[in-house]
Design a protein around this nucleic acid. Structure first.
Length: 300
DNA sequence: GACCAGGCAGAAC
DNA sequence: GTTCTGCATGGT
C-alpha cells in the first residue's frame, strides 16, 4: 500500500534549513553509528520517529524535508545535534599526534542523538558482523515488523523501526529469517525488557554513567562495547567510549607498539586518555582508521 | 576452506 | 583475575 501525504498537519510535507559549520553529513550518516540512512545520489533518506526524512548539504546550509508535523523540526535538530559547538569539543581532544591527525582528517564528523531502543537493537545485531550485513539485517527487520511510512514522490518503500512490543511478540524463527542468527534471542529479550519497563530510558538518562552502563549490561548479549554505543549514541553520555576491533587495533598500534594489550586494558586506557569527549574522539579515530585501511564508500 | 566481521558468554586456566 | 572457544551468517 502506497501512502501519500495528506492535508492534515500531522502528515504534511515540510522543509527547513539551518546554517551549519563543520558538519560533514556524509561522514556522520555513513560512519557506522547509525545503519538506516541511504544515499539516493543527491541526498540522504531515512526515518526518525516514524517520519520519513531527506537531508542534504548545500554550501553552508543543511537542508531537510520530512513528512510529518511542522514541530518535527525540533526533533530533527536534536537528532542531528545541530547546537553543538564543535570548536569547543575539538579543543577538549587529547593533544596526542594520533588523535589530532584523526581529528584533522575527520573534520565535520558529528555524533547523532538516536532513539535508544533503535540504537540498542541495532548494536545488538552488530556483534561479529560487517556494516553492510548489519544494514541488511535491520532493513529486513523493519520490512517485516515495522510499518510502511508515507513516501516522498518517486521514493522506494520506507519502513519504521519496529516497536519493542512488536519484536517482543515475534517468534525466533521470524527474527532468524532476517539473518541475525544467534542474536535473535538477545534481540527479543531486549525488546521484552524495554516493553515491560525493566529498561527505563528516562531513568537511565538521569542515572550516573556507571549505573546506566551496569543496567544495560544486565541484558543478555549486551557487553561493554554495545553498552557504550547505547550510552554514547542515544543517552547523552559523551564520555562513553565504544571500543571495537578497529579502535582496539588503532590504539594498540599507536600507544602499545610491539605489545598485545587485552581488550580490557585498551578500554581502560581509552577511558583515561580520551577525556570527557571520549565518544567524539573514538568516532574520529574509528572513521579515520576505517578510511585508511578500507576506503569507505560514503555514498553507497 | 580459512579467516574475518562496530562482541558476548561461559568454560578453562 | 585473564585467556580461550563457540556462536550464525555472509563476504573475501
Amino acid at each position: 500500500m502506497k501512502l501519500t501525504p495528506g492535508k492534515g498537519s500531522g502528515s504534511a510535507l515540510h522543509g527547513c534549513s539551518w546554517r551549519v559549520e563543520h558538519y560533514n553529513l556524509d561522514a556522520t550518516l555513513g560512519s557506522g553509528q547509525v545503519f538506516r540512512w541511504r544515499w539516493l545520489g543527491r541526498e540522504w533518506e531515512g526515518a526518525i520517529g516514524g517520519c520519513p526524512v531527506r537531508l542534504r548539504r548545500e554550501g553552508d546550509r543543511l537542508l531537510a524535508r520530512w513528512i510529518g508535523p511542522a514541530a518535527f523540526r525540533r526533533t530533527l535538530a536534536c537528532y542531528l545535534r545541530l547546537q553543538e559547538d564543535m570548536e569547543a569539543i575539538l579543543a577538549e581532544f587529547p593533544k596526542d599526534p594520533p588523535i589530532q591527525e584523526a581529528a584533522r582528517a575527520c573534520r565535520g564528523l558529528r555524533l547523532l542523538r538516536q532513539d535508544p531502543w533503535e540504537c540498542l537493537a541495532s548494536f545488538l545485531l552488530s556483534s561479529n558482523k560487517q556494516i553492510p550485513q548489519i544494514r541488511r539485517i535491520i532493513e529486513c527487520l523493519c520490512r517485516r515488523l515495522g510499518r510502511e511510512l508515507p513516501r516522498f514522490p518517486g521514493s522506494n518503500p520506507l519502513f519504521s523501526f519496529p516497536e519493542p512490543e512488536a519484536v517482543a511478540a515475534t517468534s525466533l524463527e521470524t527474527l532468524r529469517a532476517c539473518g541475525m542468527g544467534y542474536r535473535a534471542p538477545f534481540l527479543r529479550e531486549a525488546a521484552r525488557a524495554v516493553s515491560e519497563g525493566r529498561i527505563d530510558w528516562e531513568r537511565l538518562r538521569r542515572a550516573s554513567i556507571e549505573e546506566a552502563r551496569a543496567r544495560l549490561q544486565i541484558l543478555p548479549g549486551v557487553g561493554p562495547k554495545i553498552a557504550e554505543c547505547v550510552l554514547l549514541y542515544s543517552l547523552g553520555f559523551d564520555q562513553a567510549c565504544p571500543v571495537d576491533v578497529w579502535i582496539r587495533r588503532a590504539v594498540a598500534e599507536a600507544y602499545f607498539p610491539g605489545g598485545n594489550p587485552s581488550a580490557k586494558r585498551i578500554r581502560e586506557f581509552c577511558a583515561r586518555r580520551f577525556g570527557p569527549r571520549a565518544g567524539f574522539v573514538q568516532q574520529c579515530l574509528y572513521e579515520y582508521v576505517r578510511r585508511r585501511n578500507a576506503p569507505v564508500q560514503l555514498n553507497a
